Amino acid sequence: MTATIVKETRRSPESTGQPRRSFGFWLRDKGWRHAVGVVMALFAIFPLLYVLSAALSSSSTLAGSNALFSDFDSSFGNFQALFSDPTRPFGRWFVNTLFIGIVTSVASVLLGALAAYAFSRMRFTGRRLGLLSLMLVQLFPQLLGIVAIFLLLSGISDVVPWLGLGSQLGLIMVYLGGALGVNTYLMYGFFNTVPKSLDEAARIDGASHAQIFFTIILRLVTPILAVVGLLSFIGITSDFIIASVVLTDPDAQTLAVGLYSYVATQRAENWGVFAAGAVLAALPVMALFLFLQKYITSGLISGSVKG
């Protein structure tokens, strides 16, 4: 038995009878899309590189950061200054941010999922009015109620100090109240895509609403849970206004509020330290995004395949 080797050569446009396309045609057809993508990528990456350059610079101001990474500090003095200042407990701020962000994200996802399941699967009096109320409440920004939030927490402090002004638990409650409406409405649309026949089949087997929700529905709506949790964590860790109003104790503050003290004065000379703190503050968000990305991708892929 003899083996035959077949060599395939790539045909040129001339051999197939097709005219060769010019560079101008490619640029008008597809090239402009690549150009727009490159410009937008540079536009998005430049602020990140600028902050990273300022964090690694030996200068304490932003004046010497115009040329990226031109004044590199091999000793990482700005990062050392974050943890060496006893008046600014950066480590405590970091832990506070993780605690508030994780607790609020998990609670908002759980409460939003429970409310969305009730609106999607159950029929009760006031259901339609409740959905419309959730949508209307989101039309008003949370900042409009910041004065009312301050007065409410100030009054609660006289009765329940651990839940009032200056407490992290009070801030968590404020975040949950502001995010519950939009999260519920967002999950409600995703819950409606899950076939109700699964609920009926489980109910015939004797499963309760709790068993259906925790063992069946939550596994099928993993993508929306990951998205809501990620968005909640990003919004909470980057919030400054509400956290600065509620948290009055320096030891209980978050990173956004604590880092502001480095540049609060008009002629601040701690921009390098501030940039270093911003770089470290972005690490948990990046880690959470990379962790949840596989759940979002796997959920979308499994939903597109019929088995």
Rank of each mutant, 00 (worst) to 15 (best):
V221N: 02
L163V: 06
R267W: 14
G177I: 00
F274R: 00
G155E: 06
A201Y: 07
L56G: 01
F240P: 07
G299S: 06
G258Y: 02
V285T: 10
V95M: 10
D199E: 15
R128G: 13
S70N: 13
L62E: 00
G235T: 01
F79W: 00
A44I: 09
G229M: 04
F79Y: 07
V109C: 06
N270G: 01
V160M: 12
A67L: 14
A118S: 10
E200W: 08
P223E: 04
L68M: 10
L247G: 05
P86T: 11
A63N: 11
F23G: 15
A148F: 09
N78H: 15
S238N: 13
P223Q: 03
L136M: 11
V95C: 07
I217Y: 03
Y262V: 05
L62G: 02
R267V: 11
H209Q: 13
F23T: 12
L292D: 03
N183I: 02
F43N: 08
I204G: 01
M286F: 15
V228C: 08
I217W: 01
A54G: 13
D29C: 06
S197C: 07
S302Q: 12
R121W: 06
T193V: 08
A243E: 05
G258E: 03
I216Q: 07
G166M: 07
S58A: 14
L52V: 13
T215A: 14
L255R: 04
A264K: 10
I149V: 14
G189H: 09
R28N: 08
S298E: 15
S105H: 00
G130D: 08
R203C: 05
S304R: 12
V227A: 12
L144I: 14
I217D: 00
V159L: 10
A226R: 02
S60D: 13
L231F: 12
Q168V: 04
F124M: 10
A67E: 13
F119W: 02
G181Y: 05
Q18I: 13
N183S: 11
T254M: 10
P141R: 05
T16K: 08
R128P: 01
F124W: 13
L169Q: 09
V245L: 09
P13R: 09
G31S: 02
D199I: 07
A81N: 15
A44T: 14
V174T: 06
G130W: 07
S105C: 04
S57H: 03
M187A: 07
P161Q: 11
V227K: 00
M135C: 09
S65T: 15
V228H: 03
G77A: 11
I296W: 04
Q266D: 14
A116G: 08
V257N: 00
V106P: 02
M122T: 11
G307W: 03
L292E: 01
L151Q: 14
F25L: 13
Y175K: 05
P223K: 04
A268I: 02
S302N: 14
D158T: 13
G229V: 03
L198E: 07
F72E: 06
L111E: 01
L42Y: 12
A201N: 09
L111G: 03
K30S: 10
G170C: 08
A243H: 03
V160K: 13
V36M: 12
A113I: 01
F214R: 12
I5P: 00
S75G: 08
F291I: 10
P250Y: 03
